[in-house]
Design a protein around this nucleic acid. Sequence first.
DNA 1: TTGCGAAACGGACCGGCGGTCCGTATGGTT
DNA 2: AACCATACGGACCGCCGGTCCGTTTCGCAA
Lengths: 195, 195
Amino acid sequence: MPAPRQRADAVRSREAVLDAAEELFARSGPAEVSMNAVAAAAGVGKGTVFRAFTDRTGLLQALAERRSAPLRRAVAEGPAPLGPDAPPHERIPAVLDALARFKLDNQSLHLALEESGVSSPYASPSYTWWHTTLRDSLARCTDAGQAGFLAHALLAAVRADLIAHLATVERLPFDEIRNRLTAFVHSVLPDTPRA
Amino acid sequence: MPAPRQRADAVRSREAVLDAAEELFARSGPAEVSMNAVAAAAGVGKGTVFRAFTDRTGLLQALAERRSAPLRRAVAEGPAPLGPDAPPHERIPAVLDALARFKLDNQSLHLALEESGVSSPYASPSYTWWHTTLRDSLARCTDAGQAGFLAHALLAAVRADLIAHLATVERLPFDEIRNRLTAFVHSVLPDTPRA
DNA sequence: TTGCGAAACGGACCGGCGGTCCGTATGGTT
DNA sequence: AACCATACGGACCGCCGGTCCGTTTCGCAA
């Protein structure tokens, strides 16, 4: 099964839909954008959208995937402070900081993702990847069981809706968020000077 | 405006709907239950449901309100360790522990609530109340700004979907969750012995 | 007890959603 | 050039949350 290949028009459509969706989501809230609207904006039939992405959640995930690829690469194989070679005390705060910034920059997309579908965000492969990465770094500072929970707790602190709330409702400037988040992360890492 | 009074049938209906909804939500997942189904199960017309609760979110909130009243009372005016007289180092872990247990016991309801509607859970009065309570306790251990963020972070660690994930997917027994949560909370409180 | 206006009832109805289906058009291959 | 697999598009479906309005019920006052 050497790669089923895709027809040229198919890839063109796929790209067009992705672009249109990105545009629409950026402009208005997550639940406001219907699949119909996406199809129309992409200049494509509805069926095409669903063939390419299966369902709404699929489209959202593909979008998030594309958008987050650079950050994930930076964490998976980049240089310090994000990359795997950085010492945990440096890497963990850096990763959370980057995640917070990323979620803030892509608010509507993440809100859409976290609330889409019936299932929790915890089921998504993306969450699992971040959790694993973080847990492995944490395991170098804490005992294993606690590392797993801690990774969840840290990720919970940068959930899109919380960050959005801090920025939008509480009107905290991003630097404030960043400072408090960093202080929080340090307080959770053992053997680290308190802020 | 001394209290508009309500007709007897209205209160009867309201109660019936609440009961039926509680039953249905407990039995199956949150998104699975339609307003139609609730109305039918309550032996009541759809219009009645909407007159009593305005919309889906309203029903969910009313349900959560009713269910959480005892816990909120215990925290607002009960004895230590939950009540306001308990010292922060004792009260904060106790409150989070109680919240975790509560969310686990009422999974489907809370999942429904957190994902309902367009708006984030952070907009609900209920969240605000918990946040304020926690922040005020925290303010006795930390500087004010950090207390606000910390309260958010702690509450994020007991979000319904996370707790549900730990219990259901990771199959952690509740006591494990409780232990790790408590250890986490302590690590965040300054001037407290580490576990 | 009866009469009557206000309040609540119920379910047909609406617009719009996510998702499917299938006749038609368009690659790519020989 | 001919052929068929693949992709296209948009009419169509079932269902949902929410509204509307003719009918029933409640409770007060005569």
